[in-house]
Design a protein around this nucleic acid. Structure first.
Length: 597
RNA sequence: GGUCCAGUAGCUCAGUUGGAUUAGAGCAACAGCCUUCUAAGCUGUGGGUCCCAGGUUCGAAUCCUGGCUGGAUCACCA
């Protein structure tokens, strides 16, 4: 049991014995004592005044008296206004540290029998162009949240839904047919997704030319957009594809494979993966039967023209189309179908969708309609919504070429990491291969941390110059501290010092040291909180604070050079444990840590 | 217009289940610390009407109401 919960229950006892009043444990507020005051933990006594009917100071004194007498670890107390500051014994903190050290996967809840099963869908790219910065945020969030949920004892299934059909795919196909002259990834050496993306852009350019030509002939702009021959041809291609025309499907398959091969390389470099990949070309007709059943049950209604709708006015929303006049499905229909299948097939308890905030409305409606159709799990779908990534020059627009390409960005990061590392020259004795591994870890650590430290729901600014800064609140700063700890521990061992399994509890430790242990003690709570909020940012903020504190400690305290061997042992145990937490916390963000850098 | 989200230092962000005269980091600027465990580090200085106005209370950046600004969304597109 943690010291906080012991104090809580004792405060309840104290209020009862001093004032004869029963209170609930949750009314007891415990917080870290502010730096400027003496003590470790603070009880806020204001809520108890109406029971004690005494001044805040007096009440705090009486409770403090009771707690020091009744809790072994509490050695002293002081009162500032209505705040009761408790001093916790050093030996207690050291035992907390020792406990953490011997716990395997400290802070993690192991996967147990009957664990909750959660599916998380993320990435979900279109196969007409390469991945860009916005996708990076999506992928990093999805992967990290999956890691965090696993650490909370969930059984996690990661899935990707590839959007591989539709008019936008046909545009790339058509442009390639027209202007491609048989180019392939092999013939050009261009990564498949980039090659296809090139023709998606090409389509747009040629299409615009056609519109201009039509307008020059006197056609209205809106009409020209609809009548441009290229567009009509792309639409014709989509019809052929849907009819299963062999030639079209073969072309589609060939170009999709190029893109998917390209994506695999990008995913691998990003360090994300999936347990199952769905293709929209397989799923886009799903959900129809469910909608028809809903219509028969009277939950949905049909217009004279044949289309089927859901009336959401009771929930303050509009009407939503589910089947067109011609009976074909829309996006929402498909999502209803796949959600049903997933809950049915995998027997999942929850489903998280990592999708940008422009689809907030869509997911709100999805949940409402599923509820209307009588699925009790409709409130178990969670939209993990994230904001846009903006650039200093404004928004990213694929057509204007202001997108930041994922592959380019990652390559640039690695180059910068390589340069910086070579300047600092700390990797002597490493082989080329080992050194490259470090550059990659540092580069990806910088990128991932930069993106994940921001609260997902906020729009974020991506400044390329700042993102490659390796000082301050950055991934490399944290990785550096880890590498430094490994170096110190290694030096200590090299001198023949044996680091014990547990530190001696009878030591005089500094405030900084006891504070570091309190942070160590907090790690499990942080993981739980991050899981509850599905927020990697909570992990990154915690790890940053921990590292910041550790670096101050490192600066002021000798570790391997401490002469008192018990104290040296303690500091090494503490350092090693903090190293473990850094490694573990970073793994929850999908970031690796190098042993040297 | 309706709905949802955001607004904290010059810039990028923490802090939001209400808590301590003094609201925290990083970057940028300036000034220090490497013959001693990794200086991708540490220390210091300057920098704030926490968007505005009311309200709730012992106490509000945090909760409520109204407004302002920015973003997203409201298709027989996906």
């Amino acid at each position: 049991m943690s010291i906080e919960s012991i104090i809580k229950s004792k405060v309840v006892e104290a209020v009862n014995s001093c004032y004869g009043q029963g209170i609930e444990e949750k009314t007891v507020q415990i917080q870290k004592t502010r730096r400027e005051f003496e003590g470790d933990l603070t009880v806020v006594v204001f809520p108890f005044l109406r029971f004690s009917k005494k001044s805040p100071e007096e009440t705090a004194n009486e409770l403090g008296q009771f707690l020091t007498e009744n809790i072994e670890a509490v050695s002293a107390f002081n009162v500032v206004k209505g705040f009761l500051n408790l001093v916790i014994d050093n030996s207690h903190w050291i035992s907390v540290l020792n406990e953490a050290v011997k716990t395997e996967n400290y802070g993690f809840t192991p996967l147990a029998e009957g664990a909750k099963k959660v599916m998380i869908e993320y990435s979900s790219p279109n196969t007409n162009k390469p991945l860009h910065l916005g996708h990076i945020r999506n992928n990093l969030l999805g992967y990290s949240v999956a890691q965090i949920l696993k650490a909370n004892g969930y059984e996690v299934i990661k899935v990707n839904l590839v959007n591989d059909r539709g008019i936008h795919i046909c545009k790339s196909m058509l442009a390639w047919l027209r202007f491609g002259e048989g180019e392939t990834p092999e013939s050009t050496g261009i990564k498949g997704d980039h090659l296809v993306g090139k023709y998606y852009v090409k389509f747009d350019q040629e299409y615009k030319k056609e519109i201009e030509a039509l307008v020059a002939e006197g056609m209205e702009a809106d009409e020209a957009k609809k009548q441009a021959p290229l567009l009509l041809e792309a639409q014709e291609m989509l019809r052929k594809w849907e009819a299963g025309d062999e030639e079209t499907v073969a072309l589609w398959r060939k170009m999709n494979d190029w893109v998917l091969e390209g994506f695999d390389i990008t995913y691998k470099k990003m360090g994300v993966d999936f347990d199952k990949v769905y293709f929209e070309s397989d799923t886009y007709k799903k959900g129809k039967a469910i909608v028809e059943k809903g219509l028969a049950d009277g939950e949905l209604y049909q217009k004279d023209t044949g289309s089927v709708w859901a009336n959401l006015e009771a929930d303050g929303l509009d009407h939503k189309l589910l089947l067109r006049d011609d009976g074909t499905s829309v996006y929402m229909t498909q999502d209803i179908g796949t959600a049903f299948e997933r809950f049915d097939e995998f027997n999942i308890d929850e489903h998280v969708y990592v999708v940008g905030n422009e689809q907030n409305y869509h997911f709100q409606v999805l949940s409402l309609i599923l509820g209307k159709l009588g699925y009790e799990w409709h409130d178990k779908i969670q939209h993990l919504s994230y904001g846009m990534v903006e650039l200093p020059e404004g928004k990213m627009k694929s057509r204007e070429g202001t997108v930041v390409d994922a592959d380019d960005l990652m390559e640039e990061m690695v180059n910068t990491a390589r340069e910086t590392s070579k300047e600092l020259g700390k990797l002597e004795g490493y082989s080329e291969e080992e050194a490259e591994d470090v550059y990659e870890k540092v580069a990806m650590g910088a990128l991932k941390y930069f993106i994940l430290k921001v609260d997902p729901k906020k729009n974020m600014m991506f400044n390329p110059k700042e993102s490659i800064d390796f000082n301050g609140n950055t991934g490399p700063f944290i990785q550096y501290t880890y590498a430094r700890i490994q170096s110190v521990v290694k030096k200590a061992i090299d001198t023949g010092f044996e680091i014990p399994e547990a530190a001696s509890s009878n030591l005089n430790i500094s405030e900084k040291e006891s504070f570091l242990i309190q942070m160590v003690a907090n790690y499990p709570t942080v993981i739980k909180e991050a899981g509850k909020e599905t927020s990697p940012a909570q992990i990154s903020n915690y790890v940053y604070d921990l590292v910041k504190e550790y670096n101050q400690f490192y600066h002021d305290h000798p570790i391997a050079k401490e002469e008192n061997t018990d104290l040296r042992a303690f500091r090494l145990v503490l350092s090693k444990q903090i190293g473990e937490i850094i490694k573990s916390g970073m793994s929850l963000l999908g970031i690796g840590v190098p042993e040297r850098m």
